[in-house]
Simulated scan of single mutants.
Amino acid sequence: MEHSTPYKIFLLWLLLSSLMLSGVFIVWDIGILRAILQQDITRISTIILFVFFGACVHCAWRSFYLARQALMLAYLQDELVKEGSAVQLLSLFPRGSCLAQEYLVGLYQGRDAQDKVLLSEIMAESLRGTHQVGWFIAGIVIKLGLLGTVVGFVLMLSSVSGLDKLDITDIKQLMQQMTQGMGVAMNTTLVGLISSMALGVQYLLLDRCADRLVVDGVNLGQAFMSVSFDERSGTL
């Protein structure tokens, strides 16, 4: 496992979020985002943005957590190579703080191959299980955008419900109401799609990093069991 850069996972997320934040500032500065929020009388776009930034905070916490797990896993690998002892790896960190160490403890106490598979599945679920909440939020965001689309079309169609009673002086007001409804539909859809894609990129990065940690943890477990078997058999 390459671990020359501490907190590499968190730094990757920080770079990605910096690019997205720069994009938000640009569209705000040129007035596009402000116009979208002002034209959306339903405030659905504002809700989408609040949900989006809340999910980004969750991504920040998960990336930092995965970075910490990667550092502890790298330390366990280094100690196994330097010390060549398996038992001392089981108490390097406080219980429950390092998932890789908990995996090694389970392997050391396990009895058969089924236990090893179950332990690896538990480690994988612990590393990426909460990401399912993020993917759910990404789906909610795009559904909120589609809800805004429906509401916008309802507003637009309701403005023409009394078309047979209008005279020429009401045409201007009618067009303004229709434009407002169409603006709500298009703006909420745009904000929802972009927010969903941005969250998808972040959680995809977290999932890939978590998968890599699982692979490295399983590889460490194989090396650990080999050394542990030699220690138990008295060959070392």
Rank of each mutant, 00 (worst) to 15 (best):
Q177C: 06
A185Y: 06
Y108G: 04
N187H: 06
F64G: 12
A60Q: 01
M1S: 04
V133D: 09
K143E: 14
W61S: 03
A60L: 11
Q222G: 01
I142H: 05
V154L: 11
V87Q: 04
T179S: 13
C56L: 15
L21F: 15
L118H: 14
I9L: 05
A35T: 11
T235A: 14
S63G: 14
R128C: 07
V57W: 12
A67K: 06
D78Q: 11
R62N: 12
T169E: 09
A74K: 07
E231F: 14
L71F: 07
G96E: 10
A60F: 13
E102V: 09
I44W: 01
I32P: 10
C56A: 15
I41V: 09
L174T: 04
T235V: 07
M175A: 12
L118A: 12
G96V: 00
K82W: 11
R62G: 08
L157E: 02
L92E: 09
F25C: 15
D115N: 08
M72E: 07
Q109S: 15
L104A: 00
M178A: 07
E125W: 11
I26Y: 15
D40K: 01
Q101S: 02
G162D: 03
T5E: 04
V57N: 08
L119Y: 10
D164S: 15
S18C: 09
E83I: 02
L199F: 13
I26T: 05
R128H: 08
Q177M: 10
L174C: 01
Q69D: 03
M197N: 14
D207Y: 06
I41H: 03
L107V: 03
K116R: 13
R95Y: 08
T169M: 02
D164V: 13
G148L: 02
E83L: 00
F25Q: 08
V214H: 01
I142K: 01
R128F: 08
Y108F: 07
G183H: 02
L89V: 03
G54C: 14
F64Q: 15
T149W: 08
D115H: 14
G96W: 05
I194K: 01
L49N: 07
R43E: 07
